[in-house]
Design a protein around this nucleic acid. Structure first.
Lengths: 135, 135
DNA sequence: TTATAAACCTACTAATCGAGTAGACTAATA
DNA sequence: TATTAGTCTACTCGATTAGTAGGTTTATAA
């Protein structure tokens, strides 16, 4: 399951993608429209900015807006950033790999199945982008 | 990510599938061979028995063994039993569905993507069975 | 140049979950 | 009837999740 945090992230990013032509959007506006706790949202947007996905402006007329083109940000990227691994096992993860103890990856049935799950999952999550969140 | 618990469950089930012809297998044997904490394993096997996947026998000569044919138990079933939902969102879950608040499932981009992820994931996890864990 | 608007940042908290442990009980066999 | 082996309830303890509090910094505009 995705955490609330990444679900909020997607909602906020979807909203910002819609408003992309309107200039900076206030955190408080996103919070209200998408019903996301304000202070929690602050943290989330900050992370997305530090990751180079969003940009922000302080002071009057400030707010958040896209730094990258939404169409260039894969869903997988956001999940990895906010929640971490997408795979079901550390030993099949591409970005968060950890060797599994007491199990030979060469002939481990579980490993094979979970690698397959990872592959089909990533086929979806790396082909879909934040532009797909627009309505 | 799968929990340790379901990873242990798969290891234990794989071991039991291998030993299927040898009659009841001791919890302590599985615990040693697969390096799973004994008492934790007890709980796991109990759950699998209550779910009708395994059967057990008490007293001397007792132990655990398969009730169902391993080839008839889908990986998806075990994950749902031990860890719960497989989907990334409650609103796309088949077995643990929950309506999502403030989001119309009819035209929610996130919903669509996550339903697609669920579909490809289940294609794998419902076609592979515990027999695939044998080596 | 100062008031105000807005994002930034650190730290805290409460509740839940994950991973495992303790110990007494029950049933089957020899 | 002693021993073997699974059953069951409850407990612990650390990590993670889902926030909240409150002061700081920076940009704009009167």
């Amino acid at each position: 399951m995705l955490t609330k945090k990444s679900q909020y992230a997607f909602k906020a990013l979807g909203y910002l993608a819609d408003k992309q032509q309107d200039g900076p959007v206030l955190i408080s506006e996103i919070s209200k429209k998408k019903r996301i706790p304000l202070k929690f949202l602050e943290n989330i947007l900050l992370e997305l900015r530090k990751a180079g996905i969003l940009e922000s402006k302080k002071g009057k007329g400030g707010g958040y807006f896209f730094k990258k083109d939404p169409a260039d940000v894969k869903m997988a990227t956001v999940i990895r950033l906010i929640d971490g691994p997408i795979s079901m096992l550390p030993c099949v993860s591409l970005y968060f790999y950890e060797r599994c103890k007491n199990c030979d990856e060469k002939h481990c049935g579980l490993h094979d199945v979970m690698r397959q799950v990872r592959d089909v999952t990533l086929e979806v999550l790396e082909s879909r982008t934040l532009a797909d969140l627009k309505d």
